[in-house]
């Protein structure tokens, strides 16, 4: 890992020095033990902050989009001939590149507006899982050592195997290495366990409609509509989210549970063919709503009905973006 950090910093410095990029979005060490946090590097000097390890949780594509759109908006007030282009460098693992692909397919920015620094990924630690693994104790210090996480906690020293506390999405990840990149740091990481990708979903599908509905209702009852999931999601980039739209007001702002259901249903619907299973929404959810169950079900359906895996390559558009009057099969209408 040390090796990767070094290479990453060198590459970042080079890009900034050569003015290939205006900013690099990457991760730096977090202020709390065993955490990493996104950072924005604009000078070669800052590049040494960059880290890349199993603590890097967030999908940085979200920040790429934000930066580019903010820049575009700022340029609207500039005379066309004076407008400047901004290039964003981004440290990207598999799921991040999938999100970038979706952005590109959805014409959010040009390919040359983003410089992708690919990094191999063997999964990130699920913070909540780690907490559980240490029996809820507060962690005061910690370090990653090969496949082990060594910690000082309020309960004393603890060691946990990394593979045991990886995030669910990482455990069965199919795309842990970058799909597209401008430069690749290090070698591709070994494959995870994609064969088990839909195990949970299959089990869920086996249940009765009533059981599934009950589960949905139960999970939705937890939701406090803080919209953290949406904020974290790289695919949620609408200028104005439907929950904030009036004329018409799509979702009530009161406490009616059905409004929460409507919000989540519609957000889930918007994720069909667009969710890269980066786990951002899960990691930020303060209430621990099992969003992934539903997202994964939709992901499975999307693959089965339309042969599409979100952002798996530049050419394969999401289902709604590849409508073909003459060749689409009509049998996607099915019984639940």
């Amino acid at each position: 890992m040390e090796n990767i950090d070094t290479k990453l910093r060198e590459e970042a410095k080079r890009l900034l020095l050569e003015k290939r990029v205006d900013v690099i979005v990457g991760y730096e060490q977090g202020t709390l033990p065993l955490t990493a946090t996104p950072c924005f590097i604009t000078t070669p000097e800052e590049a040494d902050k960059l880290v890349w390890n199993n603590l890097c949780t967030q999908n940085l594509a979200k920040y790429v989009h934000d930066l580019i759109i903010a820049h575009k908006n700022s340029q609207k007030r500039v005379k066309p001939e004076d407008r400047k282009k901004k290039v964003i460098g981004v440290v990207a693992r598999g799921c991040t590149t999938r999100s970038l692909i979706i952005h590109l397919q959805e014409r959010q920015y040009d390919r040359d507006s983003v410089y992708i620094i690919g990094v191999p990924c063997d999964g990130y630690i699920d913070g909540k899982g780690l907490k559980v693994a240490v029996g809820g104790a507060d962690i005061s210090e910690g370090s990653l050592d090969g496949g082990q996480i060594k910690m000082k906690t309020s309960d004393g020293d603890k060691t946990v195997a990394l593979k045991d506390v990886l995030a669910d999405n990482c455990k069965t990840c199919r795309f842990n290495n970058p799909i597209i990149s401008d430069v690749m740091i290090g070698q591709n990481a070994p494959a995870m366990n994609p064969d088990a990708e839909y195990n949970d979903v299959k089990e869920f599908e086996g249940k009765s409609i009533e059981e599934r509905w009950a589960y949905f209702t139960k999970e939705m009852e937890k939701c406090i509509r803080c919209y953290a999931c949406r904020q974290a999601c790289p695919s949620c980039y609408c200028p104005t989210c439907f929950v904030e739209q009036s004329q018409p007001q799509w979702v009530g702002i009161g406490e009616d549970p059905s409004d929460t259901q409507v919000f989540q249903l519609m957000r889930l619907f918007h994720m069909v063919g667009r969710c890269v299973d980066c786990g951002s929404c899960i990691s930020v959810c303060p209430m621990g709503v099992d969003l992934r169950k539903f997202l994964k079900k939709l992901d499975k359906d999307c693959f089965e009905f339309f042969g599409n895996r979100a952002g798996s390559n530049m050419e394969d558009m999401p289902p709604l973006g590849k409508y073909d009057e003459h060749h689409d099969k009509g049998d996607f209408v099915f019984n639940p």
């Binding site: 959805e106 014409r107 959010q108 980039y237 200028p239 104005t240 739209q245 973006g321 590849k322």
Partner: peptide
Amino acid sequence: ERCSACGLCEINCPYSAISVNV
């Protein structure tokens, strides 16, 4: 104000009546 210029509409219009102004 709401449009993100994602271009889905352009792809789906059967009459080529809508397109994204880049």
